[in-house]
Nucleic acid binder design. Structure first.
Length: 512
DNA sequence: TTCCGACAGTGGGGTCGCAAT
DNA sequence: ATTGCGACCCCACTATCGGAA
């Protein structure tokens, strides 16, 4: 299949807003793909490369290349060339990768270049990613979409499912079963604004501590233990103490879901930054493990001793978990019977926060284990802090925010009346707010830059955030975690904005 | 007809590791 | 030795479509 066809279909998908039409366009293309093209076409039209990331970013793509006049590239040729790019390593590799990418771009027409650019930077912006590719695949093959989704969850790979499905038809889906050693897409939680809201929605539920660590899926088959992250990356080699912990459990074959977190000598959580740094360390694991040991904390069992537990209600999965995993290695929890036990749930949240954790996750006891964002049977609740900060600058937005000032630079007051930047945010704005702030900030401009504008520090905005973390980037030595706009405070003057000092006082754990 | 679940988009900060300087 | 860059962790929120109620 010609690569130009994919580029054209991607453009058509981007041009329509109707999901049904996007799905139909994808399905038509999938039907026409030859068997060998499928493993390439599927990820491409889901906006990804089958090779994953290739170490190519905006920097390497910034040099324009004259496009070819006629489309000659095939899908398989593009794939082969990108595989070659990914294989380059060692000294001078940046230049070599740049050269290979340049050659590929030179062989591509303008339309093909645009699509390639999107694939390489991960910004195809066609309004269709994995989920719509699944829908398209279902439509192309006549398989029920729910069955395809489940197979993708079990395979942990859309590509593998697509290949089997297009080669052998819907019956191929039966081949995808939960297998120890093969990671599955993890179940995710939605947010709720309060324990009361969550309890109301879920009825009978477990209330579990939400630990601020890294999600981990642990597979054990006899002596073989494998560890996977939320995106199914294999991190077995980085966390030897988790392998040891899994081998100590009295079960030969299982898949467990949990969190890995660094705790101090009192059992209180160390900062997320410390846990993330540890889990990210690959080179000198022994030293990292000595300095920041981590602990597994399990909350679900997907498979134990050959029994697939995914479709069991959470209550039963947890019974199995509790028989296999001793209490210190399980997440702390309580049960709540809907509204009647609201006080129980709220007390548990308060206790969790006192113990230094992030919040709670409430889980319906009757819900099966489902991947992705489908189903709101897990609801997380975290406390939210707010501040009144001053807008110091704003950056021009991209994509649907092109032409709007989007990303705000936020400052808190210093004792001398100046402002210390605490971070940025682009979250929480409605379209109306984007329009309004673009106009309002334009009146306050003191300097225009390539990326946006700096403004007179006069506009006060209420910002919600999850907590404070250390920063080497910002002058106060701290930055806000997950900052988002709540509303503008035109009733407040910059002199009434919150101070750096008050912020630090409110989060003593960060500076201690 | 209205409501709501699911999706995509829009980017935030940090850390690690590699390559370039 | 330091710096720049990309990958991958954590993530909130809004707009929109389309099926459910």
């Amino acid at each position: 299949m010609l690569f130009a066809r994919l580029a054209r279909v991607s453009q058509e998908v981007a041009a329509t807003s109707a999901r049904s039409r996007k799905t139909a366009l994808l399905a038509e293309l999938f039907r026409d793909a030859e068997a060998d093209d499928v493993p390439i076409v599927i990820p491409y039209l889901a906006g990804r490369l089958p090779q994953g990331r290739l170490g190519i970013g905006w920097k390497l793509l910034s040099r324009p290349v004259a496009p070819a006049t006629d489309p000659t590239l095939t899908v398989r040729e593009v794939d082969a060339r990108l595989t070659a790019v990914g294989a380059v390593s060692g000294s001078g590799s940046q230049a070599e990768r740049g050269r290979l990418v340049g050659e590929l771009l030179a062989a591509a027409t303008a339309d093909e270049q645009r699509f390639l650019f999107g694939l390489l930077t991960g910004e195809v912006r066609q309004g269709a990613l994995d989920a719509l590719a699944v829908e398209g695949l279902a439509e192309a093959t006549g398989a029920p979409a729910a069955d395809v989704r489940r197979a993708v969850m079990l395979a942990g790979s859309l590509r593998a499912v697509a290949r089997a499905l297009l080669a052998d038809g819907p019956s191929a889906l039966d081949r995808f079963r939960l297998t120890v050693g093969r990671p599955v897409l993890p179940m995710l939680a939605h947010s709720a604004s309060s324990v009361a809201e969550a309890v109301e929605k879920l009825g009978l539920c477990a209330v579990e501590e939400k630990l601020d660590g890294i999600r981990v899926q642990v597979h054990r088959d006899g002596d073989d233990v494998r560890l996977y992250t939320r995106t199914l990356d294999d991190i077995t080699d980085r966390l030897p103490e988790l392998t040891s912990a899994a081998l100590e459990l009295k079960g030969e074959r299982f898949i467990l879901d949990g969190e890995v977190i660094a705790l101090d000598e009192n059992g209180r959580p160390r900062s997320f930054q410390e846990t993330a740094g540890r889990v990210g360390s690959r080179v000198d694991v022994a030293t990292a493990a000595h300095e920041v040991p981590v602990s597994p904390v399990f909350f679900d069992a997907l498979s134990v001793d050959g029994r697939d537990l995914l479709d069991l209600p959470f209550a039963e999965r947890h019974d199995v978990l509790a028989r296999l995993v001793p209490e210190p290695m399980r997440v702390r929890r309580t049960l709540a019977h809907g509204r009647d036990d609201l006080a129980t749930a709220e007390e548990f949240l308060a206790g969790t926060l006192r113990r230094g954790h992030e919040g709670v996750v409430l889980k319906a006891l009757d819900a099966p284990y489902t991947a992705g964002r489908r189903g709101a049977s897990w609801l997380k609740v975290k406390p939210v802090h707010t501040l009144d900060l001053v807008v110091l600058a704003a950056e021009w937005g991209h994509g649907r925010r092109t032409g709007k000032l989007s990303n705000l630079h936020l400052g808190a007051r210093n004792p001398d009346g100046s402002f210390a930047m605490l971070g940025k945010t682009f979250k929480g704005m409605t379209d109306a707010m984007l329009t309004w702030q673009t106009e309002r900030l334009s009146e306050l401009v003191v300097e225009e830059t390539r990326w946006g504008v700096t403004v007179r520090p006069e506009l006060v905005v209420e910002i919600a955030y999850d907590g404070l973390q250390r920063s080497t980037r910002y002058p106060a030595g701290v930055t806000l975690r997950f900052a988002r706009v709540v509303r503008y405070r035109e009733d407040k003057s910059p002199a009434e904005a919150d101070t750096v000092e008050a912020l630090l006082d409110a989060h003593p754990e960060v500076t201690r």
